[in-house]
Design a protein around this nucleic acid. Structure first.
Lengths: 135, 135
DNA sequence: CGGGATCCTTTTTGATACTG
DNA sequence: CAGTATCAAAAAGGATCCCG
């Protein structure tokens, strides 16, 4: 292996587009939580507010609107008194759930790791350059 | 099905924490792209700038620092002239890749769907009000 | 080459208060 | 209950210049 040719990645990896597209979807700080809490079934506005501690009505509304516009969830107004509105994932939204689950799984692992790092800060070996960690 | 009892979701679904934790990780608009473009192997700073069109040096630096601090990627300074720095996913960072791939996959699907909606705006049936099962 | 330091603009969030 | 309106605060992103 005489020379490690550094390939132009765009020949083997798709361009940035699909990622950017999808992150606009899950981009909002609360968006994944909304999807997550709808993954178990339909849920009403006020229930979501309780499910997701710390979210304001405004932000929640906003996220729900965006997600509805993207076809990720559906909004059903029940003509009752007092009014109630049910949100539920569409089939398309349901496809996001595995993604969320994967995220959660990794998130937990990272959390555990962070705890380890706290205990032993210099465990992670610096790659490369014979220990050339400037900085 | 006499009565659909609305359970307290936190008994069956984990609390918000892991999701929030992990989204701080993938939260930045560019972060997933960075991980994605490192998924094929180590990459230098300037290469990443080319890989990810539109990213500024500042933002890229910032994202890389954050990801390094979280243990997602490693930073190796090569003591050459001119200096070069290689970034690579850590084993932990590699675990994120399936997540990214899932995101990309869904992103593409959403894109296709968006195109369909453009063509036929009133295809999506509004739930509720007609089949509105009052509670 | 690989950034750090600044400054500035655009988005996102948050806190209240009010309404049908 | 399920929002809307409004304002203030904060974060993210971008542009530019400079340095080792």
């Amino acid at each position: 292996m005489p020379l490690k040719v550094r390939k132009n990645r765009s020949q083997v990896l798709p361009p940035v587009c699909p990622l950017a597209e999808c992150m606009k979807l899950l981009g909002g700080a609360w968006t994944p939580n909304v999807v997550w809490h709808l993954s178990g079934g339909a849920r009403r506005f006020s229930e979501l507010r309780v499910d997701i501690p710390g979210v304001s009505a405004k932000v929640l509304t906003e996220r729900l609107r965006v997600l509805e516009a993207k076809g990720v969830l559906s909004r059903a107004v029940m003509p009752t008194s007092p009014p109630s509105v049910e949100y539920a994932l569409t089939p398309l939204g349901a496809e996001l759930v595995p993604v969320i689950e994967a995220i959660v799984k990794v998130g937990e692992r990272l959390k555990r790791r962070a705890m380890h790092l706290e205990a032993a800060p210099e465990l992670s070996p610096r790659r490369g350059a014979g220990g050339a960690r400037a900085r």
